[in-house]
């Protein structure tokens, strides 16, 4: 359980750092997110979706583990 919390915290901080970078990036007009036809915006979307799915899967996994321990 603690391990999962640690992993969750690591992921949360990783996402936070992305947001932090995005804030500074808006200052320049030719940053990486706007290069290559803005394809990296799609990358950010895909990463967010997959991260969300993983968080959902982890929560399901933990719920099922709890049920298994009860029965």
């Amino acid at each position: 359980m603690n391990k999962l919390k640690q992993i969750g915290a690591t992921i949360a901080f990783a996402i936070l750092s992305v947001f932090a970078n995005a804030q500074t990036a808006t200052a320049e007009s030719h940053d990486i997110m706007r290069s290559n036809g803005k394809v990296y915006v799609v990358m950010a979307v895909v990463v967010t979706i997959v991260l969300g799915l993983f968080l959902y899967l982890i929560s399901l996994d933990r719920k099922i583990s709890k049920l298994e321990r009860k029965s």
């Binding site: 391990k3 999962l4 990296y40 990358m43 895909v46 990463v47 997959v50 993983f54 982890i58 996994d61």
Partner: peptide
């Protein structure tokens, strides 16, 4: 849990490197 963490790491690699 190890292979679930591995899944996560691999897919994060794929979803970023897939675009880079």
């Amino acid at each position: 849990p190890w292979w679930k963490i591995l899944t996560f790491l691999i897919l994060m690699y794929v979803c970023t490197m897939g675009f880079l």
